[in-house]
Design a protein around this nucleic acid. Structure first.
Lengths: 226, 226
DNA sequence: CGTGTACTTGAGTGGGCTCAAGCAGGGTGG
DNA sequence: CCACCCTGCTTGAGCCCACTCAAGTACACG
């Protein structure tokens, strides 16, 4: 870790004039192909980054939580690469791009820090690719994996997204998600718990979910000699 | 672009003792979870980065071509995040991690450059997610998109990977890939051309492929009011 | 010229999609 | 407070694309 003792947000906040902004659940923060004129830090809440397919389907590409930086892509490209939408009530601080660039140039330590953040994002995206969207893995298993990633801290609570959002991440339809979720409900692995402080959520049987998430179904008949 | 006039490779080569290495097609460069003790630059050839699913299926996560940097992830993590395998005969230069880190610290300009490279990778991965692996898009369309990305320069040639590799990227089985490819062959959109200087390849009808790649099939019956 | 690996092709199955209708819940206005 | 709607969720029936398993063919390499 580089400078692990100081949060990126604090670092920036200390030196740069910052606008605080609030968004309610479902609000759009910026759109794909917009001119990028700012970078944001997430203070509170969760955000989804998504892209629209040629055919108009939305595809969720990443999640951002408290402490993450939004819109870093646009430091080099100057168009936004995604549409950003708040999943829960969200508080951001906005850093105008020009200030941000100045600051980067003056503080080399920050560069390493940003590099690290970006690689973190890359690693997360790679996991999504290999674990969440493989059609070769049954949808139920992938849903279980996703639910585990949506776990709130170390508790037995997981964020309850909309069916469309679950589907947008896994690449399946809301109907299928609904069927799978009610299946999990029947086995009492997932119980709808009202809306907590982090928006609505489930109470989940974590061990059971973990078991499902590792289920191989019946993997291809390849004896795998090694 | 930062320092766009000097390739990253040259920059490094100038200052650091470098080992040249050669790999033949199919050779493993490093394995996932290996201790990461070097960074590589691709001089010639193509490389795939892949991960293994819990159930043992391989999933290709990224491509690297001439000029790309391999193993950057491990500057912060110190385990390799992927397995790297040469797709074609490949020439790399190997930079020991300790030297690399020294060099980064001494040359801040390089840091920005690496940040840019990493974001490029991130952007590419996002495209894969949204365009190549969406099960909502028919496999034929996705294959066409992939083939277009495998185009060699501006020519009408595209790299001809193994069926397993095509499948590993798109998340479909080799059998399905075979059927789709022969379908494209029947329409004379794809013609097997022997092995060129970049390994074996197809001669492709680019306009036709482009048309297919944008085909929406019959997108969900959502009137889309906006 | 044989042998293994990659590719092809076929028949049958099934998971997830489509379309469609019904059901909750939570605002809003009367 | 209730009737209303509107959006999000549920559930069902039928279909189709891609998967599985299996057998056969081309091709590269020794």
């Amino acid at each position: 870790m580089v400078c692990a003792d100081v949060s990126l947000e604090d670092l920036l906040a200390f030196h740069i004039p910052i606008d605080d902004m609030a968004f309610e659940a479902g609000a759009t923060i910026y759109n794909m192909a917009d001119h990028a004129n700012a970078v944001y830090c997430v203070r509170q809440g969760a955000i989804k980054l998504l892209r629209y397919d040629v055919s108009g389907n939305q595809r969720i590409v990443r999640f951002l939580k408290k402490g993450d930086v939004v819109g870093l892509d646009s430091v080099f490209a100057n168009e936004q690469q995604h549409t950003a939408i708040a999943l829960t009530a969200t508080q951001l601080c906005r850093i105008p791009m020009s200030h941000f660039k100045d600051f980067i140039n003056k503080h080399p330590a920050l560069q390493l820090r940003l590099l690290e953040k970006t690689q973190e994002a890359l690693r997360e995206t790679d996991s999504w690719l290999s674990e969440l969207v493989s059609n070769t893995v049954p949808a139920k298993v992938r849903l279980a994996r996703l639910l585990l990633q949506l776990r709130i801290g170390d508790s037995d609570r997981v964020h309850r997204l909309s069916l469309a959002d679950f589907g947008g991440i896994l690449g399946i339809t809301p109907e299928t998600v609904s069927r799978l979720l009610s299946e999990l409900g029947d086995s009492e692995i997932l119980i709808k718990a009202g809306r907590g402080e982090h928006g609505r959520n489930y109470r989940a049987d974590i061990p059971a979910l973990t078991a499902i998430s590792q289920d191989v179904g019946r993997a291809r008949q390849t004896p795998k000699t090694y």
